[in-house]
Amino acid sequence: MRLAYERDSAVTDASSTPAGALAAEARLHRLEAEAIFILRELAHYARPALMFSGGKDSAVLLHVAMKAFAPAKPPFALLHIDTGHNFPEVITFRDKRAVETGLPLVVRSVEDSIRRGSVRVAGESASRNGAQAVTLLEAQNELAFDVMIGGARRDEEKARAKERVFSHRDAFGAWQPRAQRPELWSLYNRHIAQGEHMRVFPLSNWTEADVWAYIAREEIELPSLYYAHEREVVRRDGLLMPVTALTPRREEEASESVVVRFRTVGDITCTCPVESDADDAWSVLLETLSASVSERGATRMDDRVNAAAMERRKLEGYF
């Protein structure tokens, strides 16, 4: 803990005083207390699932969930919607955390939806982020989950900034942004009708920097690709594309080995790393705070397509 304060002090001028460092601690404490409160609200439901991809936000969410119900276990299943386009480190990490926490892990794959014909994809290497929504709703239906808990944050994207902590989904799994229920104080409305479900976002009020500060403070383990490592990439449209079996080098392109880290981890075909030598959570936090360019749109090709790309995916049941 002592170390955390010292590293806090290095982050900004404002925190060069003990009061500044304490304020940082107070901020994380407040966000954690709120997330624990929201997670405990979910004991109300019969069949909750925590959406666990192995990404940093879901790793934080799982960490807080373990605290919220300690010494008991959270009454949650872990649900992963597997696009089949994963980084292997992330899948290894996912399985490891499921074993460590002792929570049941349910994996449903986009591949199966494709086989059933409920999802059609343009080609093997097309992004499957959108298709995830279909598989997610199929899993919700099959396993009768009445609440699905996600690590999404309001600071990620404009449509997300509008979402409630308790986000009601109708029988089609659709979000109705124009008719969201009012959400007053923290007196959450948990009620749903038969066939409907709730999406709940305990980290709604966290920012990316809060997530990194919390990962550092709590020493939360993450898949190694969040930290600096050497990777073969090509430069395409101003982004670094990792060279993988699904995203091969084009003939006219030259690949190079660059020290990079990933800021987000999703479908391998549309997730790009950034150049960085940040090799621990504090260094990532420092970089995050000093960034002047780049955002979700700069590392995620799927949001670049259209200003309303996220909203449209959410309308169809995406988280």
């Binding site: 806090d8 982050v11 900004t12 404002a14 925190s15 009061a19 500044g20 460092a21 304020a23 940082a24 901020r27 994380l28 407040r30 991809s53 990404g55 940093k56 936000d57 879901s58 982020n129 995830q132 690590g151 999404a152 944050r153 600071d155 990620e156 994207e157 404009k158 997300r160 900034a161 920012t207 990316e208 920097a209 809060d210 500060a213 800021r263 987000t264 981890v265 999703g266 936090l285 995050t288 705070l289 960034a291 002047s292 780049s294 955002e295 979700r296 590392t299 995620r300 988280f319």
Partner: peptide
């Protein structure tokens, strides 16, 4: 699926909250 900040990330070290 995890995400990065849409706006410049808030410094967790900032002082009082309003």
């Amino acid at each position: 699926m995890d995400g990065v900040s849409f706006l410049r990330p808030v410094r967790p070290t900032a002082g009082a909250q309003v």
